[in-house]
Amino acid sequence: MSNHFIPPVVRTVILPRLAQAVMVALLVGVLTFILVRSLPGDMAYRIAAGRYGYDMVDTAAADAVRRELGLEQPALTALGSWLWDILRLDFGNSLISGAPVIKEIVHQFGATVELSLAAVLLSLLIGPPLGVLAGLRPGGWLDRVLLVVSSGLRSLPAFVLGLLLIILLAREFGWFPAAGHGSASNLALPALTLALGLAAVSARVARDAMLGVAQSPYYAFGRTKGLSERQVFARHGMRNVAVPIVTYLGVQFVYLIEGVVVVESLFAWPGIGHALVHAIFARDVPMIQGTALVMGLMFVVLNTGVDLACRWLDPRVARA
């Protein structure tokens, strides 16, 4: 009933994705809460030691940490205030550096966005065009080469691919720096690593989509209507091939987020993924919470973008 008052784009895209964002926050919140509750007894003491140095630690400092983490409250109350803090984007201070988590994350987030955008754009430049060309001539030499290359790339986890690129392009040929941040050449290897992994899959998706479209009755009908091959592709091919490629990007973002975590660590790229791994290693709960939440929300935002792109590309979705 109330559907009349809600624009369709809000009902079919924004609201479900908002629900997903809430789900992410809840999941991260509850898991980090369990984490902080399962910390061994002297954890507060150790954290305090990590922060102020062993000589400076006293019971008061440990108690301060305990209070900061809400360790002395009853479980349910603690969970409530824990989630409330998340809702207010109050993640507290890093247990290691003592700086506010939000401040550290803002800085790292920029680096991660830079890397992710570069990787996705690069992959879209490599994958779909090659896939479409292969799909137009199934069984041709490009199709066969692409199949072998993409099968090979898909059998290499992102960090192994990155490792091989370091060995090959940084150590053997010395074309790019293996690690660091700041210049464009620093971006090249990590972005290429992620882009190759993404392109290996999007090329296959594009190839299968193109093949399906080229064999479809509407493609054949376009030809017998009298359109030239170029006209059929432009009018009935492109849009129909683009829809599954963009839709599948949503699935690929899982690979992207997971890849960011590992690839940033490999290339010492100062982003969120790198920070998350560090925080886990050091059991820095507020940092774990902040970084995991931001990565999860980034995943949601990227998927929202895919949904919106699909609506724009595919009029069927907009009408549904």
Binding site: S38, F253, V254, L276, I288, F299
Partner: peptide
């Protein structure tokens, strides 16, 4: 199932490792 899908799998595994 949707709740588990909200987060990329590796992040979930990472949180478990922390716990």
């Amino acid at each position: 199932a949707d709740a588990f899908l909200a987060l990329p799998g590796l992040l979930l595994v990472l949180m478990f490792i922390a716990i």
